[in-house]
């Protein structure tokens, strides 16, 4: 993972609530065994009309949404299936940050592990961003702030560990592998509350 400390872009807006991961990447594209190349199917069934041509009614197909790396989405973004193909598809499509007033737990965790910022803002700030597609935002990860064109700054909460990993491009598996001694000790420790571990699985 590459270190990431800033995402700066105009915004594209998808004003719908409860955008589930089946919307972000439909199941029929999950037969891939790769992480790459899913961008062309991001939002596939909204993005393309039945004849395969881009559907002009889909907000991200508007000319002004082209190249936008920040997606402002309606409440409860990323709900449903745990498929990590959803953040993979968004990243491959060119999205670097998603902002909503509520983001589903598993999506958020998957996104941050892949260097896709998943930011939750209070409803009033979120509503303001939803209402103004195309404004330029400057997201500073170290400071955990979003600067608006008029100079106002929205702060957002980001788990310190996730921030550290994003800023330094650290992947978390290394951190777990370093805990090998503790894991081994745990496995050898008998615990009456974990009878399952006494049995041959």
């Amino acid at each position: 993972m590459k270190p990431l400390n800033r995402v700066r872009s105009r915004t594209a807006v998808l004003p719908f609530e409860n955008i589930d991961t089946d919307r972000i990447i439909p199941a029929r594209f999950l037969t891939t065994t790769e992480r790459v190349g899913l961008g062309r199917h991001a939002f596939n069934d909204w993005r393309y009309a039945a004849d395969g041509a881009p559907d002009p009614a889909f907000p991200l197909n508007a000319p002004e949404a082209k190249g936008c790396a920040i997606l402002i989405a309606g409440r409860n973004f990323g709900c449903g299936s745990s498929r990590e193909h959803a953040p993979w598809a968004l990243l491959d499509y060119g999205i670097g940050a998603v902002i909503s007033s509520e983001i589903a737990d598993i999506f958020r965790s998957n996104a941050l592990k892949n260097g896709l910022l998943a930011i939750v803002l209070p409803p009033d700030q979120h509503a303001e961003l939803l209402a103004q597609p195309g404004i330029e935002l400057d997201i500073d990860i170290a400071a955990s702030t979003i600067t608006l064109p008029d100079g106002r700054v929205f702060a957002f909460a980001l788990d310190g560990f996730a921030r550290h990993c994003l800023l330094n491009g650290i992947d978390q598996l290394g951190f777990l592998l370093d805990a090998e001694a503790a894991i081994g000790a745990f496995e050898r420790r008998a615990d009456p509350h974990r009878p399952s571990l006494e049995n041959p699985a």
């Binding site: 498929r83 990590e84 598993i106 965790s109 592990k113 892949n114």
Partner: peptide, 8 residues
């Protein structure tokens, strides 16, 4: 969990 965590 996601696929990265499956690897973990």
């Amino acid at each position: 969990i996601g696929t990265t965590e499956v690897g973990h």
